[in-house]
């Protein structure tokens, strides 16, 4: 298995965190993982993206140029990274704020209304976790429970009360693409 993922959106959407949670979950399952942010002199609200590899074998390039999955949280990211999906790969689109459809017909496309689902859950900030739920439902590359384990590690024990909300977000995200 080699999952080569690109996560992209604007700063504040939790795009880098999504990637880190996935990498962390992969590590918990003793897989090889790498997480690489595109770093730059960005302002708040600027673009953010990261490359995440998950594999059963040691990872070569940490830079994902042709992705098995591309996850886009805003329109500029779709415009920039639609072409980066490998033929036959998957494209996950945050349909809450992206106002166009994918143009490619050689890939699988999933539309996830991340913000709407998150708002229904009562916290707009879990939109990224909703998307992660959809991604995991389709790729099955890590166990959802390990995303929550990763989150707990990341947030610290004082934020453990947020775990049920995030579990709900993962589940709703997964249901949206079933």
């Amino acid at each position: 298995m080699l999952e080569q993922n690109l996560f992209a959106g604007f700063g504040g959407q939790g795009v880098l965190l999504m990637g880190q949670l996935l990498a962390f979950a992969g590590m918990l399952e003793s897989k090889y993982v790498s997480w690489l942010p595109a770093y730059g002199p960005e302002m708040r609200g600027g673009t953010a993206n990261c490359s995440v590899n998950i594999s059963d074998e040691p990872i070569g390039s940490p830079v994902v140029s042709k992705a098995t999955s591309v996850i886009v949280m805003n329109r500029p990211s779709l415009d920039k990274f639609e072409s980066a999906v490998q033929p036959g790969g998957m494209l996950f689109i945050n349909s809450s704020i992206i106002d166009r459809k994918a143009e490619r017909d050689d890939i699988q496309v999933f539309y996830v209304p991340c913000n709407e689902i998150a708002e229904q859950l009562g916290n707009a900030r879990v939109a990224n976790v909703v998307m992660l739920g959809a991604y995991i439902e389709k790729t099955k590359c890590v166990d959802m429970e390990n995303i929550l384990n990763a989150l707990l590690e990341k947030l610290g024990k004082t934020k453990a009360h947020l775990i049920p909300l995030n579990r709900e977000a993962l589940v709703k995200g997964a249901e949206s693409v079933r």
Partner: peptide, 10 residues
């Protein structure tokens, strides 16, 4: 290179 510095790995 900067990638080694910025990348996360187990």
């Amino acid at each position: 290179d900067g990638i080694i510095g910025q990348m996360m790995e187990p």
